[in-house]
Design a protein around this nucleic acid. Structure first.
Length: 858
RNA sequence: GGAUGCUUAGCUCAGCUGGGAGAGCACAUCCCUUACAAGGAUGGGGUCACAGGUUCGAGCCCUGUAGCAUCCACCA
């Protein structure tokens, strides 16, 4: 016997461990079933999981649990990402609080600390996965730095190197001066910051003219090599070929003309700093200028800065501007809002800087991806579709990918330098380390994440899992990492396995706070999923979070909705409790016998089948909100409010096996349909049903069964429901107590045989007189019968009500007539629609004329 | 500068391939009826951002406008 109220803590207790211990999450136990596979987007081992993870993983879990019940051999591989830069930043921060820098510790000791950190957070993540109820296969858990992934990474690096797709080069890259590492373009977050635009006078050698050049970064002026103007710019034509004097250090700078310069921008004269700006770098290459670096790896000025040497970039900026002002070369300073790049992890202003790094040559890889997306049989299908364009557009314009990081936590680059000759050796196997030293750098964390779907299955070794489960079926992720992750998995997979990594990608939005803001630490508006679970239960959290928005759209976390979701689960709980009480101890389930059903039973079965059909369709299309809504409407309105009440009549009469079977069949179907969303309560309720299996995980999903469709019963019951509703409403609007007895006259017949009994009970009808004769008075009129409520009430109120109904019907009839007299509609509308409208019009006309008659007789 | 999404009830949001708009919360009235007061019954509340167009018919398709949001690019 179930408790009176749903208690989420009691329900969740012990279930997850039971599932894991019984091996229900392990893939490949029955290989006669078709395979279905997914990989978890590996969370960073940087901290606890947040609501975004909760949504993402719940969607995956819903899909997996649904597919298992649908007869698939499901494999869902879990794992974590070492998250190179993010984790290293966290570990360094922790050390800094103890007054230690990573350089104090040295590489090896630091890595020990990082592994300690990883172990701590991986175990937190494990317990959170458990709390969320994720049905992942722990026997296949992976980590991006484990041995297998390491081998895969080395293999990929060496192969790409040998193919000429990885190269070492000196280019302008994004430098994080706090973490002291290079970053890829997408790890730089641009924000519009207010800054200053400095206008300086440059004396022109051999003339008494001055040129005005504007810059936002005066501290880089020690690395200037030229001043550029546009060749068409009349203001400066006569100066081209002369030298301008750099006001920072007195060096002469040739004045050159190039069409790159925008005449309209600034003063139309631009300084060229090849080692600290990508565009200037390109110009310098074109004209053969030297590349002069003036900042070191912590963004302090180097020896070229003269007296400013050793200053931080901003200190230098301030001092230099002051000095230039003092010697009369400052023209003006303007406030200016411009886009400034910040490091995604440290937040530091990124310094574009010349540096020797490793790159992946993207063009051939991108082209292969783009080509593959044109093939409908092998392309990765995006849900919703539009997100494919995000990927395509980015891939079309992608720059070479800077993959080396000056970090310690990560996959060390398998490149070795001969100590004597400096000759480079790129190899999966470590050479004799007496003769070689390894490259100090590690790889971008996304380099290994990009291999996740196949490396977790054992690739590059040939394994059974890889053969059976790759490509994976679906990937679920947020739109914010299409560039970072999805794209890299796709092109790496195509290049190395020849296949797409997943057949479909389900893209979801972000979770925001109640005010629509991003959840962030700095705002302090983050919601911890574990707090929500504590308060409302994981089933409510899961159901809420996956059903309150449409695919691909952002969603707000609204606590009141979680609360009402928990109330809904309580509703299901109590419905089940009632069903079990009603069925009794010795009930033996069997499929409802169609011949013995009451119209009430037949109607609910019809609605159940329609619900199963629509829920299944939505589930298959990843329309989880729609599926849940269809189920919700059925559970609340059709089942609880209507059927559970009405079925009491048959049950109390005794001979009610068919009704009991209906109760059981519908209840079980509901439990199975809510199960993927809310597995804990579903398991609890399922296991309390008679003749249950060991776990709901071994069950099958409800199948749509056309045999139970019964339109006639549905219509008859609908009329009965309307009658009850009308009587209740009538009482409410006429100030009659809801349980006041009334006498009913019905003509010419009840909606179905025995309907009167229901009226007696649910509308408190005292006597019910069924007559063939036309009713006098003020009847309610239905399709097939009319009903009059005899009660000592205000005739005027009733008349008003009838008039209102008449108005409505006139409108309806007018609508139908207009439609049907429209030759366009009659000739072009589909036949079914035409028939439907014709029938509706006839019905409405009849209803209207009866109402008019009754009104006349008043 | 380019792209995408959003604009529907007081609030938060659904609304699949076009065929008289829905939910939750909130609100009003009544009810502690033996599954559920985390409940039940009944009800009020919407020119579906705006302007055109296509169509027999538009919340849904097309064009444009406005506001909000996000992404990409540029920024000497």
């Amino acid at each position: 016997m179930l408790e009176k109220n749903y208690d989420h803590k009691q329900v969740e207790e012990g279930k997850y461990d039971k599932w894991v211990d019984n091996g229900y999450f392990i893939g490949g136990k029955d290989k006669s079933k078709p395979p279905f596979s997914m990989v978890i987007p590996p969370p960073n081992v940087t901290g606890k999981l947040h609501l975004g993870h909760a949504m993402d993983t719940t969607l995956e879990d819903i899909i997996c649990r649904y597919k298992r019940l649908r007869g698939y051999d499901v494999l869902w591989i879990p794992g974590c990402d070492h998250a190179g830069i993010a984790t290293q930043a966290k570990v360094e921060e922790k050390l800094r609080k103890q007054g230690i820098s990573r350089y104090d510790l040295g590489r090896e000791k630091f890595l020990e600390k990082a592994w300690e950190w990883k172990n701590e957070y991986a175990s937190t993540i494990h317990s959170q996965w458990g709390a969320m109820g994720l049905s992942v296969d722990y026997t296949r858990e992976r980590f991006t730095l484990d041995e297998g992934l390491n081998n895969a990474v080395k293999h990929v690096f060496v192969t790409l190197y040998n193919e000429g797709l990885i190269y070492q080069g000196e280019k302008i890259i994004n430098w994080d001066p706090v973490l002291r590492t290079a970053l890829s373009n997408i790890e730089v977050i641009h924000s519009d910051d207010e800054g200053e635009f400095f206008y300086f006078y440059y004396d022109v050698e051999g003339t008494d003219e001055r040129l005005i050049v504007a810059t936002t970064r005066p501290e880089t002026m020690f690395g200037d090599t030229a001043v550029f103007v546009n060749p068409k710019d009349e203001r400066y034509k006569h100066l081209v070929g002369k030298n301008a004097i750099n006001p920072a250090n007195g060096d002469p700078l040739p004045i050159m003309a190039d069409s790159y310069v925008d005449i309209e921008f600034g003063t139309g004269a631009m300084k060229c700093t090849p080692a600290h700006d990508p565009n200037d770098f390109a110009l310098a290459k074109k004209y053969g200028f030297p590349l002069i670096k003036v900042l070191d790896e912590t963004a302090h000025v180097n020896h070229l800065g003269g007296k400013y040497e050793g200053m931080d970039r901003y200190e230098c900026r301030k001092a230099l501007v002051e000095d230039i002002k003092n010697n009369g070369h400052l023209c003006k300073i303007e406030k200016m809002v411009h886009s400034v790049g910040h490091s995604e992890r440290s937040g530091a202003v990124v310094e574009p800087m010349l540096s020797k790094q490793w790159f992946v040559k993207m063009k051939p890889l991108a082209e292969r991806l783009l080509e593959n997306q044109k093939n409908p049989d092998t392309k990765v299908e995006f849900v919703p579709k539009r997100f494919e364009n995000v990927l395509l557009r980015w891939m079309r314009e992608v720059d070479d990918w800077c993959i080396s990081r000056q970090l310690w936590w990560g996959h060390r680059i398998p490149a070795y330098y001969n100590i004597e000759t400096g000759e480079i050796l790129v190899s999966e196997k470590e050479p004799d380390m007496n003769l070689y030293r390894q490259d100090e750098d590690v790889l971008d964390t996304w380099f290994s994440s990009g291999l996740w779907p196949f490396a977790t299955m054992g690739w590059p070794e040939s394994t059974e899992d890889f053969d059976r489960y790759f490509p994976t079926s679906v990937l679920v992720t947020g739109y914010d990492i299409i560039f970072f992750w999805v794209s890299r998995m796709v092109f790496q997979s195509l290049h190395f396995t020849g296949k797409r990594p997943f057949n479909q990608v389900l893209i979801h939005g972000l979770i925001r706070d109640e005010l629509g803001r991003k959840m962030s630490k700095s705002l302090g508006n983050g919601v911890d999923p574990m707090d929500v679970i504590e308060k409302y239960g994981v089933d409510a959290l899961r159901l809420f979070i996956t059903t309150n928005s449409a695919p691909g759209l952002d969603e707000r976390y609204v606590e009141s909705k979680v609360q009402s979701t928990a109330a809904y689960l309580n509703k299901i709980w109590n419905a089940c409790r009632y069903v079990e009480m009603t069925l009794g101890e010795d009930y033996k389930p069997s499929k409802p016998n169609k011949k013995e059903l009451t119209p009430i039973d037949a109607a609910i079965l019809d609605k159940l089948e329609r619900t199963i059909k629509s829920v299944t369709k939505s589930m298959d299309a990843f329309q989880f909100g729609q599926a849940a809504t269809a189920l919700y409407d059925f559970v609340y309105d059709d089942f609880c409010s209507s059927y559970l009440e009405m079925s009491k009549i048959a049950l109390q009469k005794g001979e009610s096996k068919a009704t009991k079977d209906t109760l059981f069949y519908v209840m079980k179907s509901i439990i199975l349909m809510i199960y993927p969303y809310s597995p804990f309560i579903a398991e609890e309720l399922y296991c309390s049903l008679p003749e249950h299996l060991e776990s709901i995980m071994l069950e099958s999903y409800p199948e749509y069964d056309k045999a139970y469709l019964n339109a006639k019963a549905v219509k008859a019951v609908a009329i009965l429901e309307n009658m009850i509703k009308d009587i209740r409403n009538y009482k409410a609007t006429n100030g009659v107590a809801p349980n006041a007895k009334v006498n009913l006259n019905i003509s010419p017949k009840e909606p179905f045989k025995g309907a009167a009994e229901y009226l007696a009970r649910f509308a408190f009808a005292n006597s019910i007189n069924i007559t063939k004769e036309s009713l006098s008075g003020n009847p309610f009129i239905y399709d097939g019968c009319e009903m009059i409520v005899e009660e000592d009430i205000d005739k005027e109120a009733l008349k008003a009500k009838l008039l209102k109904e008449k108005e409505k019907l006139i409108g309806e009839v007018a609508r139908g007539e207009k439609m049907l007299s429209n030759p366009g509609f009659v000739s072009k509308a589909p036949k079914e629609k035409l028939a439907l409208e014709t029938e509706k019009l006839e019905k409405n006309r009849k209803l209207l004329s009866s109402i008019e008659e009754k009104l006349a007789s008043l």
